[in-house]
Amino acid sequence: DPYCPYPTSLLHIEELCDSIVRSHRDTSQFRLEELQALRWKLFSREELHAYQSKSVDEMWQHCAVRLTEAVQYVVEFAKRIPGFRGLGQNDQITLLKTGSMEVVLVRMSRCFNTENSTVFFDGKFGSTELFKSLGCGDLMVAVFDFAHSVCALRLTEQQMALFSSLVLINPDRPCLEDRGRVHRMRRDLEVCLSHMLRRDNQESLQHKLYQKVSVLQSLCSLHVEKLHWFSQRYPLIVHSVFPPLYKELFT
């Protein structure tokens, strides 16, 4: 178990960095080259109209499925973070229950084109208009704004990998059984990030990244608020056709 005793040797930190970068690359759902190549493949007027004509429950279900696919890649990422599988299953679930959506939102900035404010969805790039029938305009604007702000940091894939792991390994989550262990994991990840930023001569990024955490938390609670609003109007839909993993995480 790499966390007993608690090495802080540089070799350990560099090995930890490499392992997290590899985990991110192996579980990133869309390759960066693929996204870059498709960035100008936009939805046509007719395709946009088709999305906007979906009923609210159809669009909610469709987006819940897409979100759940993204979350599954984040679960695989978590499993590959050294020490994560050494945690008790309840703590692994506690970290993922809130952290998975946050990592999805961080990763979304890889799929975002700031030049025309579009996001990669269903194989093409679309604006917030694409999601009009969800009835969650404020949430979508907030999510797109967040993507813009993360893109503005121009993170490398390695930096995004480290930041994603820090978002996930959060010792402040309520109901953790072994908070100390999560804290020790988190400390080594923080050392990794500052080591990496020093190497990249971008130490100012550290503070900007930590500032993103509170925005992430507000986006996640806004999502849960919207889900609550939707499931009151369509309780059967959520119960019968929403992905089971989505329900486990968010209801």
């Binding site: 679960v75 499993k79 692994q92 679930i93 089971p244």
Partner: peptide, 14 residues
């Protein structure tokens, strides 16, 4: 309670 998540976590990271 988290049946699916338990199963995903138990699967090997092949």
């Amino acid at each position: 309670k988290h049946k699916i998540l338990h199963r995903l976590l138990q699967n090997s990271t092949s």
